[in-house]
Each structure stands twice: as structure tokens, then as C-alpha cells.
């Protein structure tokens, strides 16, 4: 871990200014991912702006009947909130499917969105990795890629977004609220928040440098049945091979997004029209462009089968 300087900001705008004004500066919230990466010198910030005092830790009702989740609301607090459990079950379910109790107590809503890939080649600084070191190559594509992306990847990067929460937020059509150094707010639809790797896999999101997430807003509740199904080798404390976030209405229509398959939560709204026809009808179009590797080809049928399980459980209920 390189040396850095440290400050605690008092307001969101002050924090954004502190980061925007200093090359190499980064926000520090829960730290559960950033500190891990700093120890390995995958992240090498020269200055940390600790945002824990920004009072962004509340969940409030919005005028539109939705919820505004402060950026610093912990994963545990968010999953525990009575309104979230009642009206946004897919979100609560996704959160508690991720990480461990200890990590969820510390991890924040904004930090969860910004967590970086768990690709093992990204984590090993001896290996080429375009995400960690642009232009160095991708060791994963022809390497050990069992965990990695099957769709939306590029010849530069096949990393996945490792999180669960964002997959649920994608199904809920959440909005990410930000502020920049000039104090200007911005609202980014979750669909536009994470990027596909393309030729710039080192850029995970569409946030501008120094732009600070202040909240995540959920629209009015959708009703329906909320499911988050996570498939992994061990029963807990593991990243998804494939996950499905779904909100299914009683008439069989619904929304679905997949985790563990792409550089961002994978959802194609047009494919959802086929929900009443069953899982294969949906995934055939959702994964039409899939380009799996030898190691992760199983993810495509697994995605279909997992969605089938989700639909079948609903029919049984």
C-alpha cells in the first residue's frame, strides 16, 4: 500500500471538490473493496477523502412514492429497512445474498455500486490486465475464466461486475444521484451507470472524475413477487456464477436482470415480453450475443435453468 494523505470531508460538495482538485485522490466510504485493492497496489490513491461524516446515511420516502437511499446507508441497514423488505424484496434479497454479515455492515450503497471486478487476473499484479493497466492485455480471455463474463465483453476484457445489489437495482430501474465539484447534481439511470468494457475496460462507470454518489433513488414499488436467485459453488460468502433478479407479476409478466454474466447487470427490457412463455424464451434473446469461453460456457444454459427455477417457484406458490 502506497502512502497517502487523508482527510474527512464535511459536505458532499466539499468532498467532490477535494477529489476533483487532486489527481490520484479517491473517496473512502466503507473501504471494504478499496482497502483490499490498496494493499495489493491495484489501487494506488495518493489522497483519501473519507466521506463517512456526510450524513448520507438515511432512507427517505420520495414525493413520487419511491425511496431515496443515502449513499452511505450500509448494506445491512438497507436490507433491514422495513419498507425495502416489504416493497423492494428483490433488493433486500440481493443484498443479503452478497458477501458476509461483517462486510455488509461496513459496505455502503455507493461503494457497492463501485466495487471492482473479482477477475483473478485483475487481482494479480504480475498478470496483464487491461482493466488494471490499460494496454497490457487481457490474460483472462484465454486463461481461467470460469467466473467471468459470457456477454457484453470485448476482446480487451471479460471481467464481470461482481455485485448483487446492482442487479436488483437494475430490475427496479433505480437512479443514481450524484454531485460534482461545482455542487451540480446529476441523476444517472442505473442502466447507464455501469459500462461495458469495450476498448476502455479500466473505466467501470460513467461517473466523471470527482463526481460523488449522494443517493440511489427507487421508483414507486412494482408489486409482484420479488426473487433474487444466486447460484454459486459454495452455499454462502461467494460471488455469483449466475444470479437472477426478478420481479414477476401475478399474470406472469415481469422484469429480469442477470448477474455474474457481464460487466454490468444484464437486462434487456425487450426480452421481458417473453416472460409468460417461460425462461428459454427470455434467455434466447437475452443471451443471443453471448460469446462464452470454454470455461464458462455452462453459464448460458445455467442462466436459463435458473430463471426457469424462479418462474416455476412462482407458479408453485
Amino acid at each position: 500500500m502506497r502512502l497517502f494523505t487523508y482527510e474527512r470531508a464535511k459536505t458532499p460538495a466539499e468532498a467532490a471538490r477535494a477529489v476533483a482538485g487532486q489527481p490520484g485522490a479517491k473517496f473512502l466510504a466503507g473501504g471494504t473493496n478499496l482497502i483490499d485493492l490498496m494493499k495489493l497496489e491495484i489501487e494506488t490513491p495518493t489522497h483519501l477523502v473519507d466521506v463517512q461524516d456526510l450524513k448520507l446515511d438515511r432512507i427517505e420516502q420520495t414525493g413520487e412514492g419511491g425511496l431515496k437511499i443515502g449513499a452511505l446507508v450500509s448494506n445491512t441497514a438497507l436490507a433491514s429497512d422495513a419498507r425495502v423488505r416489504r416493497d423492494y424484496g428483490v433488493l433486500a434479497r440481493a443484498i443479503v445474498a452478497g458477501a458476509s454479515g461483517q462486510l455488509r455492515n461496513k459496505a455502503t450503497t455507493a461503494g457497492n455500486l463501485l466495487q471492482r471486478t473479482r477477475c483473478p487476473y485483475f487481482y494479480d499484479t504480475n498478470m496483464p490486465c487491461n482493466k488494471r493497466k490499460p494496454g497490457s492485455g487481457c490474460a483472462a480471455i484465454a486463461g481461467y475464466s470460469r467466473q467471468l463474463a459470457v456477454i457484453g465483453a470485448s476482446d480487451q476484457c471479460i471481467a464481470t461486475h461482481p455485485g448483487d445489489m446492482a442487479v436488483a437495482l437494475r430490475v427496479l430501474d433505480a437512479t443514481v444521484e450524484t454531485v460534482n465539484a461545482a455542487g451540480e447534481p446529476r441523476a444517472i439511470p442505473i442502466a447507464d451507470f455501469h459500462r461495458l468494457p469495450g476498448a476502455t475496460p479500466h473505466i467501470d462507470t460513467n461517473l466523471a472524475p470527482g463526481e460523488l454518489i449522494t443517493a440511489v433513488t427507487l421508483p414507486r414499488p412494482l408489486g409482484g413477487r420479488h426473487v433474487y436467485e444466486k447460484v454459486r459453488d459454495r452455499a454462502s460468502y461467494a460471488f455469483a456464477l449466475v444470479s437472477v433478479a426478478a420481479v414477476i407479476q401475478w399474470d406472469g409478466t415481469g422484469r429480469v436482470a442477470f448477474g455474474g454474466v457481464a460487466h454490468k447487470p444484464w437486462r434487456i427490457e425487450a426480452a421481458e415480453a417473453a416472460m409468460p412463455q417461460g425462461a428459454a424464451a427470455v434467455t434466447t434473446s437475452l443471451f443471443a450475443d453471448a460469446k462464452p469461453t470454454h470455461d464458462n460456457a455452462f453459464k448460458v444454459p445455467l442462466a436459463t435453468r435458473t430463471l426457469a427455477a424462479v418462474i416455476a417457484e412462482g407458479n408453485a406458490a
Binding site: Y123, D124, G143, Y144, R234, A235, S236
Partner: peptide, 23 residues
């Protein structure tokens, strides 16, 4: 094993999964 670079790729306790309580 990565056969090109010659090493065990999943070389930490997140990559090398051992059973947890839930298992």
C-alpha cells in the same frame, strides 16, 4: 492452473473456496 503462465490462478481465500458454515 493457468497453463500459459504456470500458476495457480485462484490464489486467495475468495478464489480458492473452502466450505463455510452454510455448507
Amino acid at each position: 492452473i493457468d497453463q500459459r503462465f504456470g500458476f495457480f490462478v485462484n490464489h486467495d481465500l475468495a478464489g480458492y473456496e473452502v466450505p463455510v458454515h452454510a455448507d
